[in-house]
Write a protein that binds this DNA or RNA. Structure first.
Lengths: 187, 187
DNA sequence: CGAAATATGTCAATACTGCTGACATAATGG
DNA sequence: CCATTATGTCAGCAGTATTGACATATTTCG
C-alpha cells in the first residue's frame, strides 16, 4: 500500500517537550487533523453512493444504522444518540418508514412510546452499508496487526467527549451482546 | 440517560442467522464504525462552536484550514482537495474574503489565477481552531505512546481512497515542509 | 492574429440536513 | 383531575451541497 511515510519527522510537529499531555502550545497536529478529514470523508463515501440511488442521504444512514443496532430503541433515545432535534429526525424517519425500511411499535408497558425496528429490507440495507465500511476497515486493520487495531480503538474512544464516552462505549458493548443473543439465542 | 434497552421482540426483524452464516463475509466492524462516527463528531464539534460565533460554518473552516496550510493555492486546486463544486466554494470563500480572513492575488505567471492567502486574522483563526483540535488529539496520543500514534496514522492513511492517498500524503508532507521554510527560512 | 482552451466568477434553481418555536395528541402517574 | 412525558407535526429559516448555463479575462497554439 501507500507506505505511509508520515513517520513523525523528528523536530517537526511532535514537540520534544513532554508537556503535550493537554496543551497544544507548540505545533498543531496538522497531519492527524487532515488525515481525519480525508479518512472520514472516504469512510462515509461508499455508503453515500448506495444511499443516493435510493433517494436517501447520510441522515437516513445514521438512523437506519442505530435502529438496526438497537432494535426497539425509543425515539427519545435515538435523538439522544444522534444529537439532533426531533424535527430533523422526524423527516428522515418518516421516509424510512414510508419506504418500508423501519417500523414502529407501541411500547408494551408504555403505549406512548414508539419503539423502532428495522424491517427485513431495512436490515439488509443496513448490513450492506456496514459491509462496505467493514471492507475498508478490515483491509487496513489487516495491515496493522492486533496491537495496531487496539491502539486505533483507544484513540477513537479517547477522541469522544468525556461526558459521552462511557455511555457510547456501553452502547457499543450492549448492542454487541444483544446481537449475539438474537443470533444464537432462543427466539 | 439513553439506556438503550433492547428487548428481543418476537418476529419483527429477521434474525440474520441464515444470511450471516452462509455469507462468508465476516461480522461487520460495528465498534470501529460507531467509534469513527462519535469521534469525528466531537472532533469537529469544538471548532464548530467558535465558528458559529463568527457566523461561519464547517465549510468556512475547511477552506480557511487548507488556505492557511497551502498559501498561494489556486482555486482549482482547492476545489480538488475539498471535492466540492465551484459554486459551493464561491459562497463561503466570498464571505471569508469580505470578512478579511482571506485575500486573493493574481498569479505571477498566469494572471487568470487567483491565488489564495490567509490574512493575519485568518491565520490567527485557523491556528485557534487547529489548537482546539490538537488539544483533543494530543491528550489521547499522550496516553497511547509513539507506537500507538504511528498505528493511528497508518490506519487513517489507509482509510483514504487508494487513488487519492498518495496525493493527500504528499500534500500533508509538502505543506509541512513549506511551513518550516516560512517559519525559519529566509525572512 | 485569431481561435480554442483555461481559470475563475456568477446566476438560477433545487435538495438535504440541521435549527427554533409553537402547538397537538395521547398516555402515564401521583 | 392534573402535571408530566413521549411523540408527532407545522411553519419558517439557515448552511451546505448540487447541476447547468453563461460571462470575462487570459493564455496557448496553429
Amino acid at each position: 500500500m501507500a507506505d505511509v511515510s508520515l513517520t513523525t519527522r523528528p523536530g517537526h510537529h511532535v514537540p520534544a517537550t513532554r508537556g503535550e499531555q493537554t496543551a497544544p502550545a507548540a505545533e498543531p497536529s496538522w497531519d492527524l487533523i487532515e488525515l481525519l478529514f480525508f479518512a472520514y470523508r472516504d469512510f462515509v463515501g461508499d455508503p453515500d453512493e448506495v444511499l443516493a440511488k435510493l433517494g436517501f442521504g447520510r441522515a437516513h444512514h445514521r438512523v437506519l444504522h442505530f435502529v438496526n443496532r438497537n432494535p426497539g430503541i425509543k425515539v427519545a433515545d435515538l435523538l439522544d444518540v444522534l444529537k439532533i432535534t426531533k424535527q430533523s429526525l422526524g423527516r428522515v424517519l418518516k421516509q424510512l418508514i414510508d419506504d418500508g425500511y423501519v417500523v414502529q411499535r407501541e411500547g408494551d408497558h408504555d403505549r406512548r412510546q414508539r419503539l423502532l425496528y428495522v424491517t427485513p429490507a431495512g436490515e439488509a440495507l443496513a448490513m450492506q452499508l456496514a459491509d462496505l465500511q467493514t471492507t475498508r476497515i478490515s483491509r487496513v486493520l489487516g495491515e496493522l496487526g492486533p496491537s495496531g487495531g487496539e491502539a486505533v480503538r483507544r484513540f477513537l474512544a479517547g477522541m469522544i467527549n468525556a461526558e459521552d464516552r462511557d455511555r457510547v462505549l456501553r452502547m457499543i458493548a450492549g448492542a454487541d451482546r444483544a446481537r449475539l443473543r438474537r443470533r444464537d439465542g432462543a427466539r
